[in-house]
Design a protein around this nucleic acid. Structure first.
Length: 606
DNA sequence: GTAGGGTTAG
């Protein structure tokens, strides 16, 4: 038997039945026209007064109507349906409970409560029950236990081969996230006899939700080998994996696929495409798609603004923001994040300040921590470290670690070592369990040449089993994503020897061209074992070396990184772009860097 | 009466 949380809802008992009773038809008509909670409550009163609360058809219609109106209405319906003072439980059928289940998410009722009621009443769940049930379960905060219980139950009722059940089961496991749940999802997926785009989308979406975009793309490739065609939802889903990975080739393929097989270009799909193109590095193509959209909403505009911002094209982003306002689209909080980011990455301090002030003055949008973060970044990037500090002090909300890290980066770039050290210590006090914070501090020690201090930190981190977030870079070649990690992992790559030699060759050529390692960022206390962590072997350099080897001369190279570009990689890449006559586009944690002829589009502020 | 989906500071 299922165990589950109990629900308790009370309603007033009905007043004595009034003489003039409404007919069933009248009640159904009223429910049919229900479009708001007050109307539903009116219908409820009507229903009670007429003594129709034990009419199964009316109750079912009532539950369905409530489901349209959201959680409060669902709770109201549940109150009537399950209140002890009515309990016409002997009347209930599977259809009614299915209808309630269908309207459950989100709701204060646990789906398993209803399911167990159903079983208690000896009502057989049918092939409608499980999809409804699993959909509601997928919306729970931690769906895994409920999902496996229901999975077992579906098996018992012999309904696990139903494709709707399978798809929702995959979705529910995927929504749970984590290795174990994803394995369970995959198991159901693999056992599905008749897959459809829905099956694939559910599984692909699961990988993406768990941050495994590589697996998502791999599965998408596998799908292409079948005769199941990706549909609009599959495309929308896989596009977010493209964003994650910066997979431009795949994004462009999807764009032409949409045209070729005439996938309906919904607003959502176009928005996702614009966003993916921009975030994968082709903001001009993103703008073309945007220009051709028959209708646009705030998301479409924000995607373009944000895309331009990431490319440092602040002036254009600001122009698009103004165009948006002129078109009559009111900016929202997210659009402001976009335009503030544009100002910060484009060095437009005055505009940024103006937009920030306009949020409250013109649009009555209360700035959130993200907006304050943008302002701190705006001042920091522009080298106005004092102003950034002052801004943080005057903030009405408590600064969070992101804000501190923004300041710390500014202190490092602008050589404010003492201040940087102080702020880093403050950060560590607030976030003592995050390994990378200690690395920040140890870097300040290194910059000050206080090696003992630096080693102390490294040792204590090791003692506590702490690690920094490992840096990695990736490069897309013939639709395949190659990942590079600094240090030990790289040996896994079969072409390692080749890359190793290429890195050496690059180093030689750069030296010849006058490149010197950025000593302020080399933490030169490296001992023998640690050699592989040296700047030479940063994942980004490995990826570039690989790209130079594998692509024809003159073609553009696109690299994606998970961290910010370090100072030395940045200057080395500038040299490489010149020496090898290659345009190199690097997407890092915060923006795009386009290296060409020895110059970077970020103008060395990042 | 049934399934899979979307922009957010570093």
């Amino acid at each position: 038997m299922l165990s589950c949380p109990q629900f308790s809802i009370t309603v007033q008992p009905p007043s004595s039945p009034s003489p003039g009773r409404a007919t069933e038809q009248q009640c159904l008509n009223l429910l049919h026209s229900t479009s708001s909670l007050p109307k539903l409550l009116q219908a409820l009163a009507f229903l009670l007064k007429s003594g129709l609360h034990s009419n199964l058809l009316v109750l079912t219609r009532f539950a369905a109507a409530a489901g349209f109106l959201g959680p409060v209405a669902t709770a109201t319906a549940a109150a009537l349906l399950f209140s002890p003072c009515y309990s016409p439980l002997h009347l209930y059928d599977s259809f009614l409970l299915n209808t309630v289940l269908q309207s459950l998410s989100p709701s204060p009722l646990h789906p398993l409560s209803l399911f167990s009621l159903m079983l208690r009443l000896r009502l057989s769940p049918n092939h409608f029950t499980f999809p409804f049930l699993l959909k509601a379960i997928a919306a729970l905060p931690s769906p895994l236990p409920a999902a496996s219980l229901v999975h077992a139950s579906a098996l018992r009722f012999g309904l696990v081969r139903d494709s709707f059940v399978q798809n929702t089961l995959i979705h529910a496991y995927a929504a749970a996230g984590g290795v174990a749940a994803l394995d369970l999802a995959r198991k159901v997926f693999d056992e599905t006899p008749k897959s459809s785009p829905v099956t694939f989308s559910a599984m692909i979406g699961g990988y993406i939700l768990s941050g495994r975009s590589n697996d998502a793309v791999a599965l998408f490739r596998q799908m292409q080998l079948t005769n199941i065609r990706p549909d609009d939802v599959t495309i929308l889903t896989i596009l977010s994996a493209c964003v994650d990975l910066g997979a431009l080739d795949l994004t462009e393929w999807l764009k032409s696929y949409i045209e070729r097989v005439k996938i309906p270009k919904s607003l959502y799909l176009c928005n996702a495409l614009v966003d993916a193109l921009a975030k994968c590095g082709d903001v001009d193509s993103a703008m073309e798609v945007f220009d051709e959209m028959p209708e646009r909403n705030i998301v479409s505009w924000t995607s373009v603004i944000d895309g331009l911002a990431m490319h440092g094209r602040g002036v254009e982003a600001v122009q698009v923001f103004e165009d948006m306002k002129n078109t009559g689209v009111e900016p929202d909080a997210v659009a402001f994040i976009g335009v503030l980011k544009a100002c910060s990455h484009g060095g437009l301090v005055r505009d940024g300040r103006r937009y920030f002030n306009s949020m409250t003055r013109e649009f009555e949008i209360e700035p959130r921590i993200e907006h304050y973060g943008c302002m701190v970044d705006l001042f920091s990037r522009a080298g106005k470290v004092e102003e950034a500090m002052e801004f943080v002090r005057a903030m009405p909300i408590k600064p969070n670690p992101v804000i501190w890290r923004t300041l710390i980066a500014a202190c490092r770039v602008y050589g404010r070592l003492e201040l940087g050290e102080k702020v880093t210590k403050q950060l560590i006090k607030e976030e003592p369990l995050y390994g990378s914070n200690y690395i920040l501090l140890s870097n300040f020690y290194a910059l000050n040449r206080r090696w003992e201090k630096k080693w102390e930190i490294r040792k204590s981190m090791e003692g506590q089993g702490m690690r920094k977030v490992p840096g990695f870079s990736s490069f897309e070649l013939n639709g395949e994503i190659y990942e590079f990690v600094a240090g030990g992992e790289k040996k896994k790559l079969s072409q390692f020897q080749e890359i190793y030699e290429m890195v050496e060759e690059i180093a030689k050529k750069l030296k010849g061209a006058g490149y010197m390692a950025t000593t302020s960022e080399i933490l030169l206390d490296i001992d023998e074992e640690d050699k592989e962590d040296a700047l030479h072997w940063h994942s980004e350099k490995l990826a570039i070396a690989f790209a130079l080897l594998k692509t024809p001369p003159g073609t553009k190279i696109r690299i994606v990184k998970n961290l910010r570009v370090c100072g030395d990689c940045h200057s080395a890449t500038k040299f490489i772009s010149k020496v090898y006559q290659r345009e190199i586009v690097v997407r890092d944690r915060s923006r795009f860097h386009c290296f060409k002829d020895g110059i970077c589009s970020c103008k060395d502020f990042w």
